[in-house]
């Protein structure tokens, strides 16, 4: 799914790297636990989270994620925005909850990352 399409569906405010709205994401991972992002994300995915700290962006960077959507109207500070800018990661903020955000993206064709085996 194109990042611009996600922005439309979520009525999200773009916080940085608008020039990359044309990039695609192939799956999504929604969670506030960065340890799990590091353990389970496998491909060029979007991170949906309500957690706001610089490690969210560094985690996304480590996993080659190209977009972060902050849910529940959370917004990162300037330091975080600069870190994302330096690395071309699109950041957006939506007033929707994590559940609604996931539902909207999923019902429009964006799948989750692979299932987790115990």
């Amino acid at each position: 799914m194109k990042i611009s399409k996600m922005q439309e569906l979520l009525d999200a405010k773009v916080l940085c790297c608008e020039e990359n709205l044309g990039k695609h994401v192939y799956s999504a991972f929604g969670c506030d636990l960065m340890s799990d992002v590091l353990a389970y994300v496998t491909d060029q995915a979007v991170l949906l989270t309500g957690l706001v700290n610089p490690q969210v962006i560094r985690t996304a960077l480590m996993m080659d994620m190209v977009c972060i959507v902050f849910v529940r109207s959370k917004e990162p500070n300037e330091e975080m925005i600069n870190l994302a800018k330096e690395n071309g990661i699109v950041m957006m903020s939506t007033n929707k909850t994590l559940y609604t955000t996931c539902g909207l993206l999923y019902s429009n064709g964006l799948v989750g990352t692979a299932e987790v085996e115990k």
């Binding site: 340890s35 799990d36 700290n53």
Partner: peptide, 15 residues
């Protein structure tokens, strides 16, 4: 609360 400490770090490092 900062998003870490779930006990996944060392196993993930090994993996």
């Amino acid at each position: 609360s900062l998003g870490f400490g779930a006990g996944m770090g060392l196993p993930n490092m090994k993996k």
